[in-house]
Computed example of a mutant assay.
Amino acid sequence: MKAPRCWSAGSARSTATSASSVWGASCTVVTPIASRLRSIAFDPSSERNIMNRRATPRPEYDTPTLVTQGNVTRHLWGDEESGRVGDEVLISSHELHALIFTLAPGGRFGHSPDNRTVFAADEVYAVLEGTIAVINPATGQTVRAETGDFVFFRRDTWHHGINWGEGPVRVLEFFSPPPAAGAASAYAKEQPYLARTLHGEPEAIGHWPMDRAELAGAATMTHLRLGDVRWRAEGDLQVGLVCSTEYLTVTWSKLLAGQRSLERSHEGDALVHLTRGELHVHTPDGNGPNWWRLLPGESLAIPRGFAYQMVNQSGAPIEAVIASAPGYLSGGAGG
């Protein structure tokens, strides 16, 4: 297995450790030494372990770290009642939680007493591939999102997902406040259980499209395409604001061939996920690697306060989804 791709005065090395999967098989997790990945201790007596479930792993980083298919942390969420979903956990710090989940054709997830999908967090789904129906089973609101679309919802929104496409669906999920703040299962288990679910809005029958405004006003989820975002010109960087709350900011960003962003840093932890092209990132701070190469599907985790500059050295555009939590740019650069 190859070490993460980065170039600096000293090359990064990696170590491998063996862990058991939920099926009892052995898997290998590769941890770059240079990134100093911290594993948050898991306390068996904590309230997060009271339910019959396995807690999602929490990879957290001290320095900028490249996350690839070779070193990503994998986890199987759910049970027979809720459905099981394969997660690739990109970061789960005390400020930001991000993962990619995959649903096979015909796949779906719901909830169960042990795996409840209602959290004290703002969330964004960025559809990387395929078509997904995102459903609030408490109200019946259903959003059909395709590749390149986003779905945003705030705390206390129950949510289910169904693969409505002919192939797999892959979704990049951002979540803040994160599980480390008690906003996930620790919070969900304290909420009244949703026993009756709706997968369509009863109020729409006999009233659509005449009562469009009333139904829109009652919506708990927002479906956004690129035509719906708020645009910003940050030097060469084209920035589409998907959401910006007191807890979470998510943007879609683009650099044309030969362009570079301004040097920037965030008020909290951040993640850059490349969806198109070949991107280089310069991270001038710290003693570790400072020149990174990302290919589509790879991410760079950037801890709070670290500066970085995105550089497109290729002859084609790059596109990326970037999240930071909390806040956006440091030093009052968010205006």
Rank of each mutant, 00 (worst) to 15 (best):
G277P: 01
H282R: 13
L248P: 00
R170N: 12
A180L: 13
C243P: 00
P44I: 10
D62W: 00
F153T: 02
G305F: 11
A216I: 10
S46P: 03
T28M: 09
G148R: 04
F150W: 01
G258H: 08
P137Q: 07
A16W: 05
D211P: 00
L274C: 06
R36N: 08
A121N: 08
V72F: 06
P57A: 02
Y328E: 14
L256S: 11
I322V: 15
I100V: 15
I50W: 11
T142S: 13
G83L: 00
P4Q: 01
E129C: 06
P177Q: 07
A19C: 06
A25Q: 13
H111G: 11
D211R: 15
E88A: 12
L300W: 07
Y193M: 07
H280A: 08
G315I: 01
F306M: 06
A121L: 08
M51K: 13
V134R: 03
S35N: 04
L224K: 15
F153H: 09
A180C: 07
T251S: 13
H223K: 13
A204S: 13
R264I: 07
G206D: 03
N163H: 03
G24M: 11
N312E: 04
H94P: 00
L99H: 10
T117F: 01
P59M: 01
L172N: 10
A184F: 14
T157C: 15
M310F: 02
L128S: 09
V321K: 08
V151M: 08
A133T: 03
V124F: 12
A98L: 01
D43Q: 02
I205L: 14
Q141L: 02
P177A: 07
A188C: 03
G235L: 08
V272Q: 05
H207M: 07
D156G: 04
R154P: 01
T102H: 00
G286D: 10
F153R: 03
A333N: 14
S253K: 08
G206N: 02
T139A: 00
H97L: 11
S93E: 04
L271M: 12
V250Q: 08
T251N: 11
A55N: 11
S14I: 09
A195L: 02
E81G: 00
A188G: 04
V229Y: 00
E146A: 14
Q69H: 11
G315K: 05
R170F: 02
G227R: 12
T28Y: 05
E263S: 10
S299E: 08
G148S: 08
D122V: 09
D114E: 15
W164C: 13
D87W: 10
G10W: 03
T275K: 05
A218L: 14
R38N: 01
A195W: 05
G258T: 09
V143P: 00
G165M: 04
P168H: 13
A204T: 10
